[in-house]
Design a protein around this nucleic acid. Structure first.
Lengths: 225, 225, 225, 225
DNA sequence: AATGAATGAGAGTTCATTCAT
DNA sequence: CATGAATGAACTCTCATTCAT
């Protein structure tokens, strides 16, 4: 007697033990969702699969998150936007030259975000944002905007201190962001635009780009003086 | 959850009824498909919508293309892979230094592909390739591979002529491709990772990156000599 | 540039030459339709395929027959019902014992119908009749009824002449028909209910069944006398 | 042309809304499917209709069976192939002459299969097998082959015991099967090849054919001795 | 709180039939 | 007359979400 979904791609709970701690549920769901969203994209991830990977039933997922979109937002908050206050503090407390600050910023971005699954969320928004305008708007508000604000603050610090040239900060932001976005895409799309293996070493790439940007920011300064 | 459907434009054929345009149809369909695929992605584009935008009914689309996947492949051939033979010839006939050749290559890539809708196909493959393995394979075979081959030929020319350092050509390819891929993503995802408008001027960016790459290729050379 | 149906199962006209005689068209269509209906069934036969096999276009088919159902009816008339008047005459003119007549009847039925493609129409009606009530009704009226009438006449002749027992003619009809229907099914469904090849020789089977039936009709007679 | 759809009964679920009947569902669906497949054939039965007759929605059907074809296979297993093991045992335990065994075999075949809806599946395969090769292959493997094997065993028993002539058992099988197939078609196609009602009494027909077959099997024996 | 059976709108694809040429 | 491009209703199957248990 065939039970439901007997013949389909097996979706079976991962957690064997009954050790489900109630409080841990949302976290487990968020983790499962992150994995799957990053792996398959938003539209292509089935909510049942998220639930199964978290070791709960479909119904439970909707108990904690009212919809797939809200689940996604929660994943974004958990992995990206929720961490800005910590980062902001870190940079407010930073002592040292703004050049070091920027270098440090790019380096730890790679360590804490770029090299983790969380960076897949950015790739996901780039890919599917158009099809889910509400998510795109949320992401812009909660991630893009705070991120830009943080960077803008750093750059302005450098300009104000005379370390950087008096550039248009809003434009300069992209010189910093571009290589990071590129790296993420590289990481999450290997199979499509790469023929041979490992043509880029991310850490080296980041250092290089940091130098390049700083060179630019300072060169501009010197040129003007 | 409001499905992607929710936001879609209303679907209504544009043209008069039962107009016979056998010659023109495939082209019109391919154009409509390109527009929609680039705008919404492969999965989120409904075939009926493609048909409607081309001014025909759902059935007519399947008269010309046996499936959505084949339609996509045809779009790729029409806009990307079908043009490699022309490009290859152009570069075989190129006279001048390899540096000029590479600079020219990046420049016209932006003019003829990067700045057009066709570049959206690359973004699409980066986004959805994992969910449509057959399309990904097709794209790799028909676009990525020929593209890499063309670039590899150019780089090798420079190495052989002594103009470039004797670098690992297969790796160097990515130094050229990376900024182009980034630009495309930039272009097709404006709304997601950009706060203010047009912070990057593509043409300038390309020139800059070209210089950067050439500098690297030559610097390496000089360092060794 | 893909032309219509380029990728699909090729359906291409059979007749190469331009020797299409206008008057012959309907006949060619009927022949093609008979072939395909018998081979694939009514529902599963595509009208375009019928047209192609007859060497004309889809449109032409509908010029001669207003619908697929009417085409089928025409095929039935051409191959079965239209031939009853001839058969009736033949039997009216028959001289000899009714036993010989019946034997002859079954034998030539096999030769002229059972062993030809036309018998596939009967199998088709048995199979799909329920799904096409109008066709079933037509077939009953035009084929089953005349056939039964002819047989009834023969049987009654035997009863009247005292050659057969005074049986219920209406029931006895089925003793004659049953083996013929079975043979047809045998012929048209080999692949499904037969494991090894050619387990039945139709001609022999018919003779045998004829003897059996006659034996029964006469035995009943003798038993009563 | 009025398509088959035209004649279909209106589709409306019977049961109350959202009733949970996990245990009972598969059985109810199989029964509904059997009814409809037998009534309309495989191709002409719409899955939504099967669901509706079982009192559930379209989606629920696909919760239990992954496709229409798998549903059909399950119906075949449930009603035919799944019962062979029981039948095989019954015949292994049979005590008595092989003649009695064969007579018994044909008789209970009629009682348990021929006279039930299940026999419609055989008619269906005869009709539509060509259009659904995978189903035909399944049916051959799961029903035709085991059935032939069972019969072959019985016949060989008779030959080995000297009760039957040393005939070619593989051919003789068809002498037994033929009348059963005919009866099934008769039953499921009444409206098409029958003018008046109930001209055949199945039980009597089976007994008659059994005698006929046994007569043949034994006569051949005597003739040789 | 948790489950998972049930729902139903919606997607890709087919094909009898129409009708402009 | 003949063509074949075009139509659109119908079909199978999917999956986010609901809700009885």
């Amino acid at each position: 007697m065939p039970s439901p979904r007997f013949f389909k791609d097996k979706i079976c709970p991962v957690r064997a033990k009954r050790e489900r701690r109630k409080e841990a549920r949302p976290g487990e769901l968020l983790e499962a969702a992150l994995d799957l969203f990053v792996d398959k994209g938003f539209a292509a991830t089935r909510s049942e699969e998220v639930a199964a990977r978290a070791g709960v039933s479909k119904g439970t997922l909707f108990l904690y998150f009212p919809s797939k979109e809200e689940l996604f937002k929660a994943v974004v908050v958990e992995n990206l936007s929720g961490r800005f206050s910590e980062w902001n503090k870190e940079f407010e407390a930073f002592e040292g030259s703004t050049s070091e600050m920027l270098r440090y910023c790019m380096r730890i971005w790679w360590e804490r975000v770029g090299s983790t699954k969380a960076s897949g969320l950015t790739k996901l928004m780039l890919s599917e944002g158009r099809n889910f305008p509400e998510l795109a708007e949320f992401y812009r508000r909660e991630v893009v905007h705070p991120g830009h604000t943080l960077l803008r603050r750093i750059l302005r610090r450098g300009v104000d201190s005379g370390e950087f040239a008096p550039i248009d900060v809003d434009h300069a932001i992209y010189a910093v962001i571009a290589p990071m976005i590129f790296l993420m895409l590289w990481k999450h799309s290997n199979s499509v635009c790469v023929d041979s293996e490992s043509a880029i070493d991310p850490a080296t790439y980041i250092e290089l780009q940091a130098e390049l940007v700083l060179h630019g920011l300072q060169a501009a300064h010197k040129a003007k003086t």
